[in-house]
């Protein structure tokens, strides 16, 4: 996984423009898949067939990431942009943007010189711009409509790793690695690498409607409650194992699916944390209401500094998440119902 994750974060995939990351994941999973297909939105489905006696299980990991879209080019070569997904202005000043063609730019805002040096109140997004080093319109390497993502220097800290783009390439890695390790599962497992999660869970909703599985798990990262003076009252710490939310702000995890995850973790001595996610939600909330309903829960990797270019995760949490997901998919899920 130490080679897989850097590869995944290197591929560009802002919401709605996931082609590069999709092709990479398709390649990384091909040898382990019984069947692979995509739909019109660009969701990637990777199926590992069961023996017919188990359940139809959907595992969703979104492969899109937050980013920017160029909205206007100014005469002096500066680019006005709009957000793709939610951007926190605090993380923008001086941040770097990478475009698909390799162009790189730095972000600032109108009258930003003071803010850059001593800090000041941050303006609304329409007053920010990207500087790609062009002197005017003629030597501009990008144009209106091009999309970019934040530059992600990957740093292995030993036990932990700074991996900008952990949301959700770490989740994708957990799903991919689990697929590779999966053996003798009775269940029909369909890993769905979903699109457009960051702009409203749009891919997962469509995938769930098409698959209508017996049950579903969404794999994502979660902010933690263990940073100094964290204002998030959340019982989840970095390094204490995969996190299993009882609820987020949009849905309640299906109790039986959640309990099955906990039971499997206990059987295999996998550390885990049951918690209440008090900020945001995941693809699960879009999967659950599909057709006549899908029993859905989440498996999440603890992550600090979410949605900054320097997300930080713990290798052991990632490894334990893979173990838990793999064991879950190999377990007898008949008591879950559905």
């Amino acid at each position: 996984m130490k080679t897989l994750i850097p590869k995944l974060v290197d591929a560009i995939g802002p919401s709605g423009f996931e082609e590069a990351i999709r092709e990479l994941i398709r390649k990384e999973t091909a040898a382990w898949a019984d069947e692979t297909w995509t739909d019109t939105m660009g969701n990637l489905y990777v199926r590992k067939a069961g023996d017919g006696s188990g359940k139809r299980v959907m595992v969703a990991a979104h492969m899109d990431e937050i980013g920017v879209i160029v909205a206007q080019v100014e005469d002096n070569g500066f680019l006005r942009f709009a957000n793709i997904g939610t951007l926190a202005p605090k993380t923008l000043l001086g941040a770097r943007v990478r475009f698909a063609n390799g162009a790189v730019g730095v972000i600032s805002h109108d009258g930003g010189a003071r803010a850059e040096i001593i800090g000041s109140k941050l303006p609304d997004l329409h007053r920010w711009y990207i500087d790609v080093g062009a002197t005017g319109k003629d030597d501009l390497p990008v144009q209106v409509g091009d999309v970019g993502v934040f530059a992600h220097p990957f740093v292995d800290l030993g036990r932990r790793v700074i991996v900008g783009g952990a949301d959700n390439r770490v989740g994708c890695a957990v799903a991919i690695e689990s697929l590779r390790r999966l053996q003798n599962s009775s269940h029909d497992v369909i890993m769905v690498f979903t699109v457009q999660e960051e702009i409203g869970n749009r891919g997962a909703r469509v995938a769930a409607y098409q698959l209508h599985p017996d049950l579903a798990l969404a794999i994502d990262i979660t902010p933690t409650g263990d940073a100094p003076k964290s204002e998030l009252t959340m019982a989840v710490d970095l390094g204490k194992g995969p996190a299993i939310p009882v609820a987020d702000t949009r849905m309640i995890s299906h109790p039986r699916v959640r309990q099955a995850l906990v039971d499997v973790a206990r059987q295999h001595d996998i550390p885990h944390q049951v918690f209440v996610l008090t900020l945001g939600g995941t693809d699960a909330s879009a999967i659950e209401p599909a057709r006549s309903g899908v029993m859905t829960a989440n498996l999440m990797v603890p992550c600090r500094y979410v949605h900054t270019p320097s997300e930080l995760v713990d290798w052991q949490d990632v490894e334990d998440s893979v173990r838990l997901l793999t064991a879950f998919l190999q377990s007898d899920l008949s008591q879950v119902g559905g």
Binding site: T40, M41, N43, A71, A82, R202, G203, V206, Y209, A290
Partner: peptide
């Protein structure tokens, strides 16, 4: 002309909600 991104929403989103067609 291009419309500035991120402004508003249209019936396109309603149609595509469950089926995700182009």
């Amino acid at each position: 002309q291009f419309k500035r991104p991120n402004i508003g929403g249209t019936d396109a989103a309603g149609f595509a909600r469950w089926l995700g067609m182009p």
